[in-house]
């Protein structure tokens, strides 16, 4: 089973300082597959790993039904499920979900595009680095969520505020990892490109971008996590639709079942985004000794 860690990546501080990806040359630390000593096969370990979460949900359900936990504190899991079903049937859940996803996608595209463009520029040109990099690094020092009050003053609490915040959170990890990736491309391979008389476009397409891709995809993964975090915060502050609105609206009526539903959906989408990013890495980096074979 893959080791998804959506919570670890979702609770990323600030714009996220990306960890250095292990380079092709280095020996990759093997993922934790150490079954030695446990005396159990991988299948049983898999079952064991699910015991605690399932038990927790069951206990929660039992306590809630027995009235030990007031529904205003935490509704039973089954109640959350039926609420989900009802909201799906009347269409409002899909609408809120779609609104949130659209905001995330638009913010990601804008922020990712800007981060990638600036990163490419700075990665290639020392002049661009001198002109741009210091400013970017200074802005990056601000935890981007701290800008929220200012962003609300600028944009109000409409769509642009949310998209701006998402884009801001996305742009930095993409920028940093793009610069890093381009700088890390093996100069010997670039020289090979010169020996083969590649023009600048071909050189970028055949050698520099593929060489930078592992790092760029790391940036994408971090950006997905920050995008989602930014969206949760932005929607919670003020919205007329979206998952955050769903939760905040429910708060007024003490509908904890709806609140829990929104939280669970945020988590599920975080997991989905992370696994999409991992899937991208695996398929785009099939050549890479650290991605192709393992997992």
């Amino acid at each position: 089973m893959t080791t998804l860690d959506p919570l670890a990546s979702l609770s990323l501080p600030g714009a996220g300082v990306p960890p250095r990806r292990v380079l092709p040359k280095a020996v990759s630390p093997s993922p934790s597959r150490h079954t030695a000593g446990s005396g159990l096969g991988p299948y049983r370990l898999f079952v064991v790993s699910w015991l605690a979460p399932v038990a927790l949900v069951v206990v929660w359900e039992v306590l809630a039904r027995a009235g030990w936990i007031s529904p205003q504190v935490l509704p039973a899991p089954s109640k959350v499920l039926t609420t989900a079903w009802k909201l799906t049937l009347n269409g409002s859940l899909l609408l809120d979900l779609g609104t949130s996803l659209l905001r995330a996608a638009v913010g990601f595209a804008i922020g990712g595009g800007i981060g990638f463009a600036l990163g490419t520029l700075v990665g290639f040109s020392r002049l661009a680095e001198a002109a741009i990099d210091r400013s970017v690094q200074m802005i990056r020092a601000i935890p981007f969520l701290a800008l929220l009050p200012l962003v609300i003053v600028w944009f109000g609490v409409g769509e642009s505020q949310k998209i701006f915040l998402v884009a801001l959170g996305v742009a930095f990890p993409i920028y940093i990892n793009t610069v890093l990736g381009i700088r890390q491309v093996d100069p010997k391979l670039v020289e090979l490109g010169r020996v083969r008389n590649l023009g600048p476009i071909q050189l970028i397409r055949r050698i520099i971008l593929p060489g930078a891709l592992p790092s760029i995809l790391t940036g994408v993964r971090y950006a997905l996590a920050t995008a989602w975090l930014a969206l949760v915060v932005a929607e919670t502050i003020g919205a007329q639709s979206g998952l955050g609105f769903l939760a905040m609206d429910a708060r007024e009526f003490l509908r904890t079942d709806v609140i829990v539903l929104a939280i669970v959906l945020y988590a599920l989408i975080g997991i989905a985004a992370d696994s999409i990013a991992r899937h991208l890495e695996r398929s785009l980096l099939a050549w890479h000794p650290n991605y192709g074979d393992r997992r």
């Binding site: 092709p24 490109g193 590649l198 055949r206 593929p210 891709l213 980096l285 050549w287 890479h288």
Partner: peptide, 22 residues
Amino acid sequence: AVVFQEHRLLPWDSLWRNVALG
């Protein structure tokens, strides 16, 4: 054409694409 001490193959390209570079 040059052959270096290290092979300098592009790890992200298949063998034929490496040979066809340029």
